[in-house]
Write a protein that binds this DNA or RNA. Structure first.
Lengths: 221, 221
DNA sequence: ATTTTGTAAATTGTCAACAGTTGACAGTCA
DNA sequence: TGACTGTCAACTGTTGACAATTTACAAAAT
């Protein structure tokens, strides 16, 4: 058993803020005041500053020297660009997963695929996305590439934020999407890196278009 | 004229440390002690901690809670993985640059190409790499994608570190490499995104192999 | 009206002190 | 020997105070 190093306050505060931003409880552009937040959470400003630096890496806040922190914007162009990058990196991760997966990875991937299928059937959009993220986490683990894993983990909160914002309108087409995952798993099992990454690329491209359409009509810019 | 926000001590310290790590004055695995560094630089530990968080994002240091910071390792597998990612992201940036470049971008790209050619002729390896990085910076600027730009800027120090470590053995084949850049510029001018990104992909793949060969024979692991 | 300037309040930057953890090492016990 | 355990010094974690900067706003000048 491998133990994760204990978190310090920096990371706990980061986790707290991250959740609030993803769920939209803190709106884009809103200022985050160190003093106020420190008072609210009952800690000093040191950990708050550490947390803000962590969130800066995850693109959840924007830090300007001497001017403080604000929740980063979620514009159409940002979504556009984020997905462009995710498409490439997820395709790369899928390729590597197809090449490096062990038998143990495959059972885990199968298991998380079942979870996606179950959520799609139930039409539970929130859990569906959780299952999807879990699927990607397992797959990235199988890719055996810690650098890529970290890059994707840093981008994940932004993706979650976008998807959280469009949850309400995502009821119908879940089952249609599941096919992508079923295909991807099939190709990963076969070790067919080219086809596996192609399928994920198509899936991500679709997600991008959904997110863009949804955002253009419901959110600003 | 757009003014860059004034740096605070966090960023100045990060800059200082970044240079020392890239130049190998701090060796991989070496611990960085907050107290000691603070004394050396004549600042308190606050800014040091800020700087360490910044360098963590750039993968130059590894931070473990309650155990402090150390200069991150530069193993063969890290180099391998870093280039895999750079290949994809630089190709993406090139594609976008070919699509979005303005006339003004083109003159800048031409100018930085000349610099590369001059350095290659003189055989000045150090300046050659600087010119290459400048070339990419200009190109990334032309891609009009701030998120991608930031991702690449965060990975740049690691690339510089690798290249700095192999500078001494990089004398002969500069001229051979210049052809890639000349081709890439040609395609970017023509707006041929597919070919431009293909050329850069090949170049990056070559660089990866050079770095790997060099590292395997001269550095540990 | 519009811009400029002056001032006070709010906010971030930096520091130094203290609290809590970790790692190394010597001493103890089988 | 070799595995535990207590102790201590060296760090990191966290805090609260003070300094420097920015912002908001009102008064003065154009």
């Amino acid at each position: 058993m491998k133990f994760k190093p204990l978190e310090n306050l920096d990371e706990q505060v980061a986790e707290y803020l991250s959740n609030r931003i993803i769920r939209g409880q803190l709106s884009p552009g809103e200022r985050i005041l160190e003093t106020k937040l420190a008072r609210e959470l009952g800690v000093s400003r040191g950990p708050i500053r550490g947390a803000l630096r962590i969130l800066e890496n995850k693109r959840l806040v924007k830090l300007v020297p001497r001017r403080g922190a604000q929740v980063s914007e979620l514009s159409v162009s940002f979504i556009d660009r984020l997905y462009d990058i995710l498409i490439e990196l997820l395709a790369l991760a899928t390729r590597k997963a197809a090449q490096n997966r062990t038998r143990k990875d495959l059972t885990q991937i199968r298991r998380s695929l079942s979870k996606i299928e179950a959520c799609a059937l139930k039409g539970d959009t929130y859990d569906y996305y959780n299952a999807i993220f879990e699927f990607f986490v397992v797959k990235i683990e199988a890719a055996r590439d810690p650098l890529l894993a970290r890059l994707l983990r840093d981008l994940e909160p932004s993706a979650r934020r976008i998807q959280f914002a469009s949850l309400a309108r995502r009821k119908e087409d879940l089952k249609r999407n599941v096919v992508y995952f079923e295909d991807a798993v099939k190709y990963i099992e076969e070790g067919n890196a080219a086809l596996a990454s192609k399928v994920i690329r198509e899936y991500s491209q679709n997600e991008k278009e959904f997110a863009l359409n949804n955002t253009r009509t419901h959110i600003k810019k």
